[in-house]
Design a protein around this nucleic acid. Structure first.
Length: 480
RNA sequence: GGCGGCAUAGCCAAGUGGUAAGGCAACGGAUUGCAAAUCCGUCAUCGUCGGUUCGACUCCGACUGCCGCCUCCA
């Protein structure tokens, strides 16, 4: 079965075929670095990561680009008082906007690593690609898709691009009455948007053929995307809120400048909600991924919680769900250990029928527009079937291999850097020995007390047959 | 006002024109000194009302609720 992708532009699922066989060029709308990324951002980034991982697992050679917006976006409907977020933050904190952007870029990349997101091949900074943006703006002027105002601002002419509105359905004819009333605007059409702006109060300024100024809010993605990946990208992703106006404008810019298709497959991740409602700062339910980590939630649990539902469905984030995800991660790890033991060092043999079925279930779901929820059916079926068939030797090794392959997507199996040490193990073993003695003496109260003591250390006992006792940590957070 | 999406068991969450995956929780059984882990089993007719159809939860319409975009938020 081929990989099918839901294309937001055509509003239908299509078989994915990259422009160049075997190679995928994809672009993701990344963070605006004036603050820490929250879990909503990370849902979108984790989706992009899972997409990349599945493509790679499917044998594609992927080149991934994620922009870092360090200029900020100017408001377009309020040229007088318009202020960019980086600037306002800079004014409030009396810090240099460049410093702020650099700081939060580092924080972001740290979060990326912490949450095991594979690093993109390029993280272009908008501030480092102003020449490319200027070049694209020049192309647009040449091709009559943009005009220069008397003040030297450059504006994209929406009426010049017939397909405007194809992605979002927003042709712009019926925009909210009043919202786009221009005050002293120099635009020819209310829908037109700025490519190059001027504002003496803006802290970040660059020279251009039209004088000192700064780029508009959409040009960075089309310019950097095409600069790094070529005229046509295979896949472009972002959050659903990017559809309009951002991606609509990107298409108008990129295709206006080159006359060629900008993106073959548009993929948009839906928002997540918190406890069934919207997430917002004012409701006090906006969490950054750092906060979750600081609360002691292991990154693997957060990954699992954000990956286990389909990217095109609203995801309901709850702390109960996060705990559940952590329990699932532990379950998977325990199963991996079990299979490792049961394999007795055997090589993976030919997959038994039950295993093939689980793998097929997983692959089919993944190929169906990255249906991670459906894929989990395959994952948990594997646990169930392997235990039911009491997989041993080569079968167990094969089951483990299958699980590890699934984990190429989820990446939750490996422990965070272990805090384990010999001293702790010795302490645990001593307690287990005392418990064994108590049990031998049928002093159940003492035995249970020792078990509780071990539980307090996050140690779970596994009483096997023949009195063999093994133990494992219940916390999947080995950093704790 | 314009554009778009969602509504599946206590919770999370897939899916299909022919009678609904999986996870968590719960319950019964096996196992256990008791537990844990594991195994076996139980647990929904798919927001409401109409329509199309031999047959719909899946298609269409209306309604209700929720969510997103149209002010820089993934």
């Amino acid at each position: 079965m081929n990989f099918q992708v839901y294309d937001s532009l055509r509003r239908t699922k299509r078989v994915f075929e990259p422009a160049e066989p075997g190679k995928v060029r994809m672009y993701h709308c990344g963070p605006t670095v004036y603050g820490e990324a929250h879990i909503g951002n990370f849902r979108s980034f984790l989706f992009a990561d899972a997409l990349r991982r599945w493509l790679e697992l499917s044998g594609f050679e992927v080149t991934q680009v994620m922009n870092i917006t360090d200029v900020g976006h100017l408001r377009d409907d309020d040229p007088e008082g318009g202020e960019d977020k980086l600037e306002s933050l800079a004014r409030k904190t009396s810090r240099d906007p460049w410093e702020i952007a650099a700081h939060y870029t580092d924080v972001f990349l740290g979060d990326v690593d912490l949450f095991r997101i594979r690093r993109a091949h390029h993280y272009p900074r908008a501030t480092e690609h102003v020449p490319q943006m200027i070049a694209q703006i020049e192309q647009l002027i040449e091709r009559d898709h943009a005009y220069v105002t008397d003040e030297g601002q450059v504006v994209y002419s929406v009426p010049s691009y017939a397909d405007y509105g194809r992605l979002s359905g927003n042709t712009g004819d019926d925009l909210l009455p009043g919202a786009r009333v221009e005050v002293g605007s120099d635009k020819h059409d209310p829908r037109d948007f700025y490519l190059w702006k001027k504002d003496p109060h803006h802290l970040m300024q660059w020279d251009s053929p039209w004088g000192r100024g700064f780029p508009g809010w959409h040009i960075e993605c089309s310019a950097m995307g095409q600069h790094l990946l070529g005229t046509t990208l295979d896949i472009h992703t972002g959050g659903e809120d990017n559809v309009f106006p951002h991606h609509e404008c990107e298409i108008a810019q990129a295709e206006g400048a080159t006359g060629e298709t900008f993106v073959n497959y548009w993929m948009h991740a839906r928002f997540l909600q918190i406890d069934g409602g919207k997430m917002s700062k004012s409701l006090g339910n906006l969490y950054t991924v750092r906060q979750l980590a600081e609360m002691g939630h292991p990154p693997e649990a957060v990954r699992f919680a954000l990956l286990r539902s389909h990217y095109r469905q609203v995801l309901n984030f709850t702390f109960a769900g996060l705990e559940e995800a952590a329990a699932n991660v532990r379950k998977l790890r325990h199963f991996a250990e079990e299979m490792r033991d049961a394999a007795h060092g055997a090589e993976a043999g030919a997959a038994p029928e039950w295993l093939t079925r689980c793998v097929r279930r997983f692959d089919d779901a993944m190929n169906d527009d990255l249906n991670l929820s459906g894929a989990l059916d395959g994952v948990f079926s594997l646990l169930h079937e392997a235990r039911r068939h009491e997989a041993q030797g080569a079968d167990a090794a094969a089951a483990l291999a299958a699980l590890q392959r699934f984990d190429q997507i989820f990446d939750v199996l490996r422990e965070s850097p272990a805090a384990d040490d010999a001293e702790f193990a010795a302490q645990v073993d001593a307690l287990i020995e005392r418990r064994a003695a108590a049990r031998a003496a049928k002093d159940w109260a003492a035995a249970d007390a020792l078990r509780d003591e071990l539980a307090a250390l996050d140690v779970e006992l596994l009483d096997g047959k023949d009195g063999k006792v093994t133990w494992r940590r219940t916390s999947s957070n080995a950093n704790g």
